[in-house]
Design a protein around this nucleic acid. Structure first.
Lengths: 147, 147
DNA sequence: CTCTTATTTAGAATGCTTCTAATCTGATTG
DNA sequence: CAATCAGATTAGAAGCATTCTAAATAAGAG
């Protein structure tokens, strides 16, 4: 009986190459840790996760990475525009792999975030920002809870 | 020469009485600490401040209050609707004495918050919340920075 | 005034994040 | 391909805001 090489092997190779290029483009050395974390972050659609989430996910995936590196990497990815940081609650800070313009439902019961597509929503009547200041971005958080 | 009783004395008395009633209405015993903190919080218009801000303000005003009480009080006031908590940044958590519907500019350079009146701004195109959930409130944060 | 219960408090504990200094690795050069 | 060196990673310490704990204090009822 022939053991079929899983197709993920091929993907892993292709992805790893893409990720390497992506890191280089961001001015970051494609190290083992950064490639692994980028794989976890970007290989499964839009995600919202905390530093701790990513750390345990890496552990589960058998990637040995220190918590310090998790933080460094999340911040570097955020600075280079690969991630967006979402401040939703004094207690929880999420990193969002969807860097496009979009907004969130925030469930106060369990802390879950749900994307709201950017096209769906519109904010009107914004006053001018104070003199000498530019608008960086507009965040909308719709706080919801179980009825 | 007659020493005139400062008019603030009269106000202090009136305010203190009002505050006492307000605390009672919220189901909170009007203790020395809560009355003093309520005075600092509500006697000077709309304010955005952190626990640490209030603590040092109390110290400056000669009111002896522990930090634990500051936190307890801020949370109790928030639960009873006298304050609103504003999550704007992973690092800074503000309490807002303006509990009406309004939004904020957030200056990423220095962490300052500036009110945007609720009437000015409108959010349209909000999708329905997931089944069984109610919208609690919609927060808009306009992030600005120096040009 | 006494009793009961809520409140306050100092200080310890927690949790998340950043810092430090040492070690290691990726990339470049000879 | 070995040496080099700046950049990256790491364990653990440190930092900071917040919460917890257990004991002391103060408010309100009777």
């Amino acid at each position: 009986m022939v053991r079929v090489i899983p197709s993920t092997a091929k993907h892993a190779h292709r992805d790893s190459h893409d990720l390497t290029e992506r890191l280089r483009a961001a001015g970051l050395r494609p190290t083992r840790q950064r490639i692994a974390l980028a794989g976890l972050l970007f290989d499964q659609g839009d995600r919202h996760l905390t530093a701790e989430d990513l750390h345990s996910e890496a552990a589960r995936a058998g990637v040995k990475v220190s918590l310090a590196t998790i933080y460094n990497t999340l911040h570097q990815f955020t600075e280079s525009g690969m991630l967006k940081q979402v401040a939703v609650d004094a207690h929880r800070s999420y990193f969002d792999t969807n860097t496009g313009s979009h907004q969130h439902f925030y469930c106060e019961d369990d802390g879950a975030l749900i994307d709201i597509p950017g096209e769906a929503i519109a904010v009107s009547g914004l006053p001018m920002p104070p003199k000498g200041m530019d608008v960086e971005r507009v965040d909308v958080v719709v706080r919801i809870r179980k009825r």
